[in-house]
Design a protein around this nucleic acid. Structure first.
Length: 572
RNA sequence: CGGGGCGUGGCUCAGAGGUCAAGAGCGCCUGGUUCGGGACCAGGAGGUCGGAGGUUCAAAUCCUCUCGCCCCGACCA
């Protein structure tokens, strides 16, 4: 491709959206352009990278036994009502009406359509397992798009849906796709973590998240560097550690103190002149409608997900003011475990169970208790790991200190079981003649998001630096002085010779050398050939974008040498 | 949805009642010079200052409303 007749709008100045490196560089290097918040156009170079990623994903899905179809972006409301997600999915679901007033949504994911297709066409266990996938533009009405392609309102996703006879089949399908994902991320030269995660709006019993660690990511990850334990922060488990000295207070005489209008941990602590960790906060929740008091140290954060998990509840929501008043006889801010109504189940965080002589609300307006001791002053119904893990907490597997890092979630896979197939009445006939619901799994991978993830990992101060397998071109051929007849002749010649076996971007523009070198580094094509002043000695330069390593190559050996180097860097 | 910020040629920004019947740098067009790390000279095109109301003799500038965008948070594959 001749750059003089190509379409590459690079920016000389830094774009105004420059918070995260990948977005800044993708905009500056002319890969993408923003059309609206969370909506982007792929320009030629960006589209090229996108297509290469898409193809790698496709190859690995096919290798894992997936069969590609294409489902519609526009979905009728009926299917979503069957699954219950027309309302449950929440405001993120893009809804619209056609001219006759019929309801549709722009699909954010395709469980409904895939079940609809399979239930109409698959009737026998003999047709299972079935792994269908598609790569499609999907939509989510994000409250706040960010990071360019990372969290967009419109994005491209690969979703695979597995249909099996039973749990064993599901386990096998799940494992196949998990391996495929690891292969994809390895091929894309992305470091990644496989996390225990939450199911969110998709549902399901068991899920794994594939996350690329990077400081600009928005996913919060808890990691153990010692044993490799990794989890989404919201559900990360915390290991055992002996009760600290500091958690046991000398003064264990139960005493009521006047704390007028002090409702927050910070206020009470500063009023009493003690540290927030000497307090225990009592958070009232309704889990599947049943009242629960969750006890947690004053300076810690409760994980609603872990609490729900510990109780085995499906639905969790904070108790409203009225309920709190009814259960504790006091307004919000003065709740405590002592003298709570019978009907309230007291769940204490592991850490709290070891504490003694702490401060809690007194279940009476404007009063707190000092010197509270569990067992003596109130009864704990359940001790559980319910707080949000943070840096320094012990690893649940090996006990070492946990780390907190950030990452970009690029994939998420779920064991759905029969949730959708039962709701949508999707049955097949098994070997024994009985009708059974399909056992399903679903496996998402953010294809457009991967473009950003790779850019986020593979760049330097000069610009992007693509791994060869996804680079928009294999090599950029730079004609330094377009006025110099000899240089031009040599460049044209090399362009013709290389183009048979490689994709070559030939910078034949009448630009000054500085512009060409800067652009070449910025757009990040892995190999560069510089046809410049050494031509008169019969030499051109072959350079690596990655480390700017340069070698002089005699013109007649360019092909041979270039192919050799190309093969080498591809194999790295 | 809460908090903060910003909308001025294609891009990055300055201008904060009159001296702006609107500026700079970069980009773009014409001519010339230059040619190994975002060149130089000369000339030129390009803007209803996001939109709508209002205040004023006078509004890019002040007020009200509105739309859009960015950041932090809440939320979330």
């Amino acid at each position: 491709m001749r750059l003089s007749s190509y379409y590459l709008p690079t920016l000389r100045e830094e774009p105004s959206e420059r918070e995260i490196p990948s977005l800044r560089l993708l905009l500056k290097a002319g890969y993408i352009r923003r059309i609206a918040a969370g909506v982007y156009t792929f320009l030629p170079l960006g589209f090229s990278v996108y297509k290469k990623i898409e193809n790698i994903v496709r190859e690995e899905m096919n290798r894992a036994g997936g069969i590609e179809i294409l489902m519609p972006a526009l979905n009728p409301s009926e299917l979503w009502e069957e699954s219950g997600r027309w309302t449950n999915f929440g405001p993120e679901l893009f809804k619209l009406k056609d001219r006759t007033g019929r309801d549709f949504c722009l699909a954010p994911t395709h469980e409904e359509v895939s079940v609809e297709i399979v239930r109409r066409t698959v009737k026998s266990y003999r047709q299972l397992p079935l792994l269908i996938y598609h790569i499609q533009t999907k939509f989510r009405d994000e409250p706040r798009p960010r990071g360019g392609l990372i969290r967009a309102k419109e994005f491209v996703m690969k979703d695979l849906y597995s249909f099996d006879r039973d749990d064993k089949g599901l386990d096998e399908s799940f494992e196949k796709i998990k391996i495929a994902y690891e292969r994809i991320l390895q091929r894309l030269k992305l470091p990644y973590l496989v996390l225990e995660a939450e199911a969110g709006a998709i549902g399901g019993k068991y899920t794994l998240e594939f996350t690329v660690p990077t400081p600009s990511g928005e996913d919060e990850v808890i990691l153990c560097e010692n044993c490799g334990y990794a989890s989404a922060k919201s559900i990360a488990r915390i290991g055992e550690r002996d009760t600290q000295e500091e958690d046991i207070s000398e003064d264990t005489n139960l005493k009521k103190v006047h704390t007028p209008n002090l409702t927050t941990v910070a206020e009470v602590a500063s009023f009493l002149g003690i540290e927030p960790k000497k307090l225990v906060k009592t958070l009232l929740y309704l889990l599947d409608g049943k009242p629960i008091a969750a006890l947690i140290r004053g300076d810690r954060e409760l994980s609603e997900s872990k609490l729900a998990l510990a109780i085995g509840a499906k639905e969790i929501r904070m108790a409203d003011e009225e309920t709190i008043l009814r259960l504790t006889n006091a307004p919000m801010g003065f709740s405590g475990p002592v003298n709570l109504k019978e009907e309230v189940t007291i769940v204490a965080d592991k850490e709290v169970a070891g504490m003694k002589g702490f401060v809690t609300g007194a279940n009476e307006k404007d009063y707190h208790f000092l010197g509270v001791v569990p067992g003596r002053d109130f009864k704990i119904s359940l001790v559980a790991d319910i707080r949000v893990a943070q840096m320094g907490d012990p690893c649940p597997q090996c006990g070492e200190d946990l780390m907190e890092i950030r990452g970009i979630e690029v994939g998420h896979i779920f064991k759905l079981g029969t949730e959708y197939s039962e709701k949508m009445q999707a049955y097949f006939q098994d070997e024994d003649g009985s009708l059974k619901p399909f056992v399903m799994g679903c496996y998402g991978l953010g294809v457009s998001r991967l473009v950003s993830a790779i850019a986020e990992v593979h760049h330097d101060e000069d610009g992007l630096c693509w791994p060869p397998c996804v680079a928009p071109f294999d090599i950029i051929l730079i004609l330094v002085n377009s006025q110099d007849e000899e240089q031009r002749r040599v460049a044209e010649d090399i362009y013709a010779r290389l183009s048979d076996r490689m994709s070559v971007l030939y910078d034949d523009r009448e630009e000054s050398p500085g512009v060409k070198f800067k652009d070449a580094d910025l757009i990040g094509i892995p190999l560069q050939i510089v046809v410049g002043r050494k031509v008169k000695d019969g030499i051109v330069e072959l350079r690596l974008r990655k480390n700017h390593q340069t070698e002089d190559v005699p013109i007649e050996e360019v092909e041979e040498r270039t192919f050799a180097v190309w093969e080498k860097i591809k194999a790295e």
